[in-house]
Structure formats: C-alpha cells, structure tokens
C-alpha cells in the first residue's frame, strides 16, 4: 500500500518491491516479516543467548576419597544426568550452562552468581573453615535457605533433587576430584541460653574491644564507651580510633578480584542469616574468599555466642529510625579525651 507519508524511499518497501520481498504483496510481506520477528524472538528467548552445548555425561565423576587416594568415590552417570536435568531447569539461568556464573539471568547481578568452575573456588558460607570445600549437607542448607539480599532464593525442592544437583555441580571443577572436603565447624550449645540483655551487653563489649571486630566493621558505640569497655575487658584502653570508625572498611578480596564491604549490620542484609545460631556459624567458620577469618578456637565459643547475640540485636534495628538516630548521634559526638593517666597501658586496638 503506497503511503505518501513515508516518502519516495519507503514506497518500494511498503508496496513489496524491495528485495527479498519483491515477489510479495505489501500485506503478505508484512505478515512474513512479523512471522520472522516472532520466530527470531522465540529463538532468542528459548536459546537465552546461551547457545552452548551442555556437557555430555559419559562417565561417572570422581570425588576425592580421603581414606584412599587411589580409589575415588564415584558419582554414577544416572545421578549426574538427573542432576544435570534439574540444574538446567532451576539453576542454569543464573549460574550458566557451564557453571561459570555467566547465565543470561546472572549477568549484572550483584553479588554475581557463584562461578563453580573458578580456579579459585571459594564458597562463602560453607559452614567449614573458610577456604575449604563444603559438605553436601552444608550446600543443601545454603540452597534451601537462600542468601538474604541476593538473587539466590530459598529453593523449596525435595532434598534428593537438590543433592543430585549438588553432585552435578561438582563436575564443573576438578577441585572436587583433587581435594578433600572440609570439616564442618561445630556449633556448640548456646551457653547464654538464648537472647538476653546480658548476652547482648557482653557481645557489645567484646565486639568493640577484645575481639576487635571494629577493625573492619563499624563501631556502634561512642569513643568514651569503647574506652571503658576495652579497659574492662583487656586492661588496655583503646584510644586510637580510625577516622571512619562508624563506617566499615572496604577490603580487597584477592579471590574475587574486587573490594568487598564488611557488613554494616544495621544497614545491609546478612546473607547467611541473622539469628544468633546462623551468626555463630558464619563467625566461627569465617567467610571463604573474603577478609572475614575463622573465629572458632581464636576466642572461646561463649564469646562468639555473645557477639552473635549482639549482632543479631543490631540487625533487628535495620531500616528502623532507632538505628539512624543512634548512628547520627554517635557521628555527631566530639572526640573523647581520656583522663590523664600514666602512659604505660595505653595501647591501640
């Protein structure tokens, strides 16, 4: 159909005279164009711009056997195929068909989906000593629980399905054949018997002085309070406060290749959970690939529990005016001048 509006240049297209449409009428040509466009978009969505063959499973996968290095534990082809099917269905959109975290839905996510194929494979919340490979049960826990504040949702799938997927994921990385699995860090019983004011108070003092969490994480107390707490717990008063004491200090992660922020508990989500028990696990194990070290055996379990209760309490203030007011007041306070005393015991955090 000729249209004067589009001028002489487009006349040939509108009337079907342009190659390759020269043999069609205008309407037929537009119909074919729309079919083409539909076909194209259908192709794009199903392929997901992820035109890579998923690996063909031909043989069992070998898992490192700590009892006998020569006899690896085998994961059967059947199990791997089941796991692969489920992985492609649920996980591959973000984690990628090759497990590299570069699935079409994963690109642009912050934090990015885990790259299971990485040479520097490090699971953050594996419940084992930071840096070690997690057990199947720990991976199951993370997948079922999800990671708060990230795109990793809690997956409500049967345990068997998830365990099959976990075995399949191991095929992306030879490290599962070469290295032994880590030991799960024991979560001992809470000696405080649950959340209480005394647990939170004890945790607050430890956090700001003896355990020195404040070297990376923000302070949540005034200089005067910290001076008193450190004197009480260590006999040495903190007097050197970093200028950005109410902010966390960004730390370079050599594993992930970028700076990561130690959590500000009143402002950010706590990925592996903010109940005291979940915090105990994270603090005791450390966070793989990051600056957060393993605290189990560095300080007594009772102290880790106290700090867990305190951090859990802090996190409950997230998004509430109480937190904002508290931090505003702390930041506005003038620097504290400690009372003059013999210089002997003054020392840094």
């Amino acid at each position: 159909m000729k249209s004067e509006r589009f001028g002489a240049h487009n006349r040939s297209l509108a009337s079907g005279h342009m190659w390759p449409f020269s043999v069609m009428s205008g309407i037929e040509m537009w119909r074919n164009l729309s079919v083409l466009l539909l076909a194209g978009s259908f192709g794009l969505t199903t392929l997901g711009c992820d035109w890579q063959k998923m690996q063909e499973i031909k043989e069992p996968f070998k898992l490192y056997n700590p009892e006998d290095e020569e006899k690896p534990i085998l994961v059967s082809v059947d199990r791997l195929k089941r796991g692969q099917e489920q992985y492609i269905l649920y996980c591959r959109a973000c984690h990628g068909v090759n497990g590299d975290g570069q699935g079409p839905a994963g690109i642009g996510l912050i934090p990015p989906p885990r790259n299971f194929a990485s040479e520097e494979l490090a699971f953050k919340f594996g419940g084992v000593a930071a840096g070690e490979l997690p057990t199947d049960e720990e991976l199951l826990r993370v997948i079922k629980g999800g990671l708060a504040g990230t795109a990793m949702l809690p997956w409500d799938l049967p345990d068997e399905t998830i365990l099959d997927i976990i075995q399949y994921i191991k095929t992306f990385n030879p490290v599962w054949t070469e290295d032994e699995i880590g030991e799960v860090v024991e979560i001992t019983e809470d000696p405080w018997g649950g959340t209480s004011t005394s647990a939170i108070q004890a945790g607050k003092k430890l956090y700001h002085s003896k355990a020195q969490c404040v070297l990376c994480h923000p302070y949540y107390g005034s200089q005067e309070e910290v001076y008193a707490w450190s004197m009480e717990l260590t006999g040495r008063a903190s007097t050197n406060f970093r200028e950005d004491m109410y902010e966390p200090q960004a730390k370079m992660s050599e594993t992930y290749g970028n700076k990561l922020l130690p959590i500000d508990f009143g402002r950010q989500p706590i990925k592996a959970g903010a109940t005291p028990k979940e915090l105990f696990r994270t603090i005791a194990s450390g966070i793989g690939g990051t600056a957060m070290p393993m605290w189990k055996d560095a300080i007594p379990d009772k102290e880790i529990w106290a700090i867990s209760h305190y951090v859990s309490y802090l996190h409950k203030m997230k998004d509430k005016p109480a937190y904002k007011d508290m931090m505003a007041k702390l930041k506005a306070a003038p620097p504290y001048t400690p009372p003059a005393k013999p210089t002997e015991d003054e020392d840094a955090e």
Partner: peptide
Amino acid sequence: LKISSITAFAAVTFFACSDKGSEPAKKPES
C-alpha cells in the same frame, strides 16, 4: 527468497547469541 531470508535471520540470531554465550567468565585477578 522467503526461505533464504528466514534462514538468514535465524543465522543472525544464532551467531549473535553464540557470541554472548562464549564470552569467557570474568576471572578475578589473583
């Protein structure tokens, strides 16, 4: 002509997407 233009369009889709798919995963520097 219809067949060849549909094939050409499909080929473009294929190659455009396969480029994306074969992008190497960003490797963190160690």
